[in-house]
Design a protein around this nucleic acid. Sequence first.
DNA 1: GGACAATGATTTACATATAAACTATTTACG
DNA 2: CGTAAATAGTTTATATGTAAATCATTGTCC
Lengths: 156, 156
Amino acid sequence: MSGKLKDELKKQGAFDSLEQEAALNVLRTADRLHNRLGRLLREFGLTPSQYNVLRILRGAGQPLPSLEIAERLIQVVPAITGLIDRLEDQSLVRRERLQDDRRVVHVALTPKGRKLLGQIDQPLRELHKSLMGHLTRAELQELVRLTEKARTWPDD
Amino acid sequence: MSGKLKDELKKQGAFDSLEQEAALNVLRTADRLHNRLGRLLREFGLTPSQYNVLRILRGAGQPLPSLEIAERLIQVVPAITGLIDRLEDQSLVRRERLQDDRRVVHVALTPKGRKLLGQIDQPLRELHKSLMGHLTRAELQELVRLTEKARTWPDD
DNA sequence: GGACAATGATTTACATATAAACTATTTACG
DNA sequence: CGTAAATAGTTTATATGTAAATCATTGTCC
């Protein structure tokens, strides 16, 4: 399962274009990273999305509105509600409706959530090392540059 | 929504490691590609996964067992059943249980499925062009090389 | 040749994604 | 004011993705 995409899709013939080949390679690589990440996080009772929410909250250093979190997750809005629900069930975050603007719901990281994040930091670092560590630093930097460039679309 | 990941995750501080930064960039880039791909395919009544199944079948040039399709999708097995169900509902594929080994279900592309694929080819090529076309050919080739290398893990 | 393991596929249970519609508030504006 | 537009979240409906359990069929091995 670790051959090149051309081999994995054998018998399919050449790609329509280099752009397509690059896009499919990014998609497939991400699938596998996501899969491995999910396996690690499951040991801590979290899904990748749930982890990302906690991580965003820790990074922000303060409570954030639900939609702000959704935006940083690149997710469509509706999914955020159930996500927060389950995190709240686990007492990892807390909802607070604002007094100023009662439409806004702030989501805050709880001490329990912060502690869980701390437990994940080291294993996650090791996972990323094992998944990407066989690339040189120069290659990693180039991969970062290229994916960043890929995300800056002229029409976005 | 198109800034660099460092900016998008502002206030979060530096990444734990270069490996992690690269992995997150790949994941985030794939999310956005997947999102755009989904929007295009929806116009044709397909989801990305459904499209991938049809594409795999066309590439194979012959009917394939369900598990063979699942393997090429990198997906866990159970998901394939409902996927094929919905494609069959749309008459895009056909199930055939083998005579030799009645455990095996072959999935075949129908003429209708093949025709639909043909209608998608050109718009999809244009989409990939618009998403990745601002990278040079050398950059695209390097992106392919790096993502392929990222997928060849020592322990996989 | 008959119990048992192995294989191919499906079912079940749960958590995401996505789109569309809807509710509650707040703001803008005549 | 006071009603329409805008904003923040939620609900509903459908399709995935993952894991665990199950079913049907085939293969193995005393």
